[in-house]
Design a protein around this nucleic acid. Structure first.
Lengths: 336, 336
DNA sequence: CCGGTTTCTGTAACCGGTTACATCACCGTG
DNA sequence: CACGGTGATGTAACCGGTTACAGAAACCGG
C-alpha cells in the first residue's frame, strides 16, 4: 500500500523511532536529522497511518454522536456545535442516526467501540443501553434527554420559559388552553407542560391536554381536526393551542386555516424550538440554544475522556420566549 | 485496559487464532470449541478492539463526508441519506463541516487519513485538494459540485426544471425577470440561470441579473432593497424574481413585503431547493432529491472502496418544479 | 585527561487483532 | 496396516505506528 514509517526511516538513514519523534516532537531530535527526515517524508509523500497511530496510542481520537434524525434544524444545530468543538480538539466526529431503525441498540454499542466517548441525543436508545455503556467505562454525555444521576447531561431550560409562555398566552386573551403533546412522552415535554399550565392556571385560564405523541406536522394537522370535531359536540373551541414543539404547531395552524379559522384572531397558537419555518409562519415559540447544547456536550465529554473530572455534571442552558403574530391578535393581520 | 483476545483465549484454553476465528467465522471451528470461546467471551464481557481489527485488516470501515454546513435542510438531508446506506454497509460515518474555517484543506486531508473514502459536498474545498487526494488513491465522490472528469459525482438536474420554471414564470405573467444570484459562483447556479433565462427569453420575457454571491436570507433582503432603490431611478420593478436558492427567495419576499409590496400580486418570486420553510412561505421552487443524492453517493463510494468499478461515473438525478402561491397571482391570497 | 552528565539515536517490545502456514489427529481406502 | 487426505487448531508473522530502555557520542568541570 502506501509508504510506511519504515520506508521513510530507510530513506533518511535513521531508525523508525527517530522518524516518529522527528515528525511529532520538535524537541529531542537534532535539527539536521529532523530536516533529513522531513525531507525524506516529503519525497515519499509519506502520510502517517492513523490506524497504526491510534492502536499504539490506544485511542480513537474520535467522538461519536447519536441522534434520531437530522431533518429538523434542532438536532442538526446541536451536531454542528458539537462538531465545531471536536474539530478544535483535533477529534473526528462519528455520527449515527437511529431514526426508524429497530436495531439502534446494536448500532450504538458498535459506535461506542469505535470512539473514545459519545453523546446521546434525544429519543434514540433506552436508558438501559446508556447505563450499560456507562458501566463499561465509555464516557457519555446525554443531551436533550431525561438526565440520569451518574451520567453527564446537558439540557435546555423548560421551566422559566414555560412560565413566561403560559403568562403570555393568558395575557393574549386565552381562557381555555389546549396543550398539544403527550406530557408522559419525555421529561422535557412534561416540564414544558407543567410550567405552562401552572402559570396559565394561576392567571385564571383552564388547561386541557391532547396527548399526541408523534411530534410531526401531520400529527399537528390531525390534532386540529380533532379539536374541530369536538367543537360540534361541545360547541366550543379552545382559544389557545400550546404545542409541544414547532412542527406540531405549524401543522396545527395549517389544520385550523384549512377549516377557515384565522390565527391569531380565532385562536392563538404557540410552539417550542424556534425552527426556521416558525419565523416565516409567524409562530410564537421558545428558542433553545441548540448549538450551545452541542458545544457544552463536547466540552463535558472531553473532560470525561481526559479524566479531568470525576463527578457527573448536569447543565441546564437558558431559553428565550419569542413572541410572534400567532399569539398577538392585536398586532394585526393574519400571519404574513 | 479492557479484556483482550488473549484473555479470552486463555480462559477458553485455546489460542488467540481460534478465538478470532470462532467469533467471526461460523465455519472452520468445532461447535464445541466455538461454544467454549463464546462462553469465555461472554464471561469476560469481551468486546473486540476495533483499533486492532482495523489495523490488521488495513481498513477503517468508515466513510467521511465533508459539507459546508448543516443549518439548512439541504446538506442535512444528503448526510442522512448517506449515513443510512453507510450504516447498512456496516461502515461508520465521519463528518466534517467546513463552514467558516480557513484551514478546511488541512482538515479534509486529515479526515481522508481516517477513513476509506469520502464524499465532498458543495462549496467546501478547492478542486485542487480533491485532485490531490484522488491522485493519492483516496476514493472520492463529489456531490452538488461541478464534476471533475476523473472523479465520481452525483448532482441534481438543473436544466429541465430550470426550463420549466422559466416557462412557468412567463406564463404567470412575468415580462421582466430579475435573476438573483451569481451565475459565476458555481456551475449549478450557472446551469439554473442559463435554463431559466433561455426559456423565459424564448417566451418573450427579458432577464437581468443581480449577482449576489452570498446565498443567505440577509442577502435576499438586501437584494430586495437594491431593486426597490433602483425603482426610483428606472421607475420600474422587475415583475418576477428568480432566486438561486430558497433562502435568498425567502429573504427577498420579506424585503418586498416590508416595503409594502405584495407577493404574488405585485411581483412573483421563485426559489430553488424546496426547504421546509418554503412550504410555509408558499414559495414556488424546485425540489431536489436531497436524500437520494446522499444514497447514490454512498453507493458509488462503496464501489470505489471495494474496487468494483474502474471508470468514473457522473450521475444526475431528476428534480421537480413545485408551484405555490408566490408565483400564482390568480390563485388568490397573499401567502397564507 | 578523566569520570559523569546530558543529548541524541537505535533496538525492540509493545498496542490487539488477522491470517498464512505448520502441525496433528483422525478418517477412509487399497 | 500403511498411506494420502481432510479438517481443526496452534505458532508466529504481520498490520504501522509509539515509546521504554539502552547505548553511544558529545560535552562538562575539575
Amino acid at each position: 500500500m502506501a509508504t510506511t514509517i519504515r520506508d521513510v526511516a530507510h530513506r533518511a538513514g535513521v531508525s523508525i523511532a527517530t522518524v516518529s519523534r522527528a515528525l511529532r516532537d520538535a524537541t529531542s531530535v537534532t535539527p539536521e536529522t529532523r530536516a533529513r527526515v522531513t525531507q525524506a517524508a516529503a519525497d515519499l509523500e509519506y502520510v502517517p497511518s492513523q490506524l497504526g497511530r491510534q492502536l499504539a496510542q490506544g485511542r480513537h481520537a474520535a467522538n461519536g454522536i447519536v441522534f434520531p434524525d437530522l431533518s429538523g434544524p434542532y438536532y442538526a444545530e446541536v451536531v454542528l456545535g458539537y462538531e465545531s468543538v471536536a474539530a478544535q480538539l483535533d477529534r473526528s466526529v462519528l455520527i449515527l442516526s437511529t431514526h426508524g431503525r429497530r436495531d439502534a441498540d446494536t448500532l450504538v454499542t458498535g459506535l461506542a467501540a469505535r470512539c473514545d466517548g459519545l453523546v446521546v441525543l434525544g429519543p434514540t436508545v433506552d436508558d438501559e443501553v446508556v447505563h450499560r455503556l456507562n458501566r463499561r467505562g465509555t464516557p457519555i454525555v446525554l443531551v436533550a434527554r431525561t438526565p440520569l444521576v451518574d451520567v453527564d447531561s446537558v439540557n435546555a431550560e423548560n421551566n422559566a420559559s414555560g412560565t413566561l409562555l403560559g403568562e403570555h398566552l393568558v395575557a393574549a386573551g386565552a381562557r381555555t388552553i389546549l396543550f398539544v403533546g403527550d406530557p408522559e412522552a419525555t421529561a422535557d415535554v412534561a416540564e414544558r407542560f407543567a410550567a405552562i399550565s401552572a402559570a396559565a392556571e394561576r392567571d385564571g385560564a383552564s388547561v386541557t391536554v391532547e396527548p399526541v405523541s408523534d411530534f410531526s406536522e401531520e400529527a399537528g394537522v390531525h390534532a386540529a381536526r380533532q379539536a374541530l370535531a369536538r367543537r360540534r359536540t361541545t360547541k366550543s373551541l379552545p382559544d389557545a393551542f400550546a404545542c409541544a414543539n414547532d412542527e406540531l404547531a405549524l401543522g396545527l395552524m395549517l389544520g385550523l386555516r384549512d377549516a377557515g379559522l384565522r390565527v391569531p384572531e380565532d385562536a392563538i397558537v404557540s410552539g417550542w424550538d424556534d425552527v426556521m419555518a416558525a419565523r416565516y409562519a409567524g409562530l410564537t415559540t421558545v428558542r433553545q440554544p441548540m448549538r450551545d447544547l452541542g458545544v457544552h456536550a463536547a466540552q463535558l465529554l472531553d473532560q470525561l475522556i481526559n479524566r479531568t473530572r470525576e463527578t457527573p455534571v448536569h447543565e441546564v442552558l437558558p431559553t428565550e420566549l419569542i413572541v410572534r403574530q400567532s399569539t398577538t391578535p392585536t398586532a394585526g393581520g393574519t400571519t404574513r
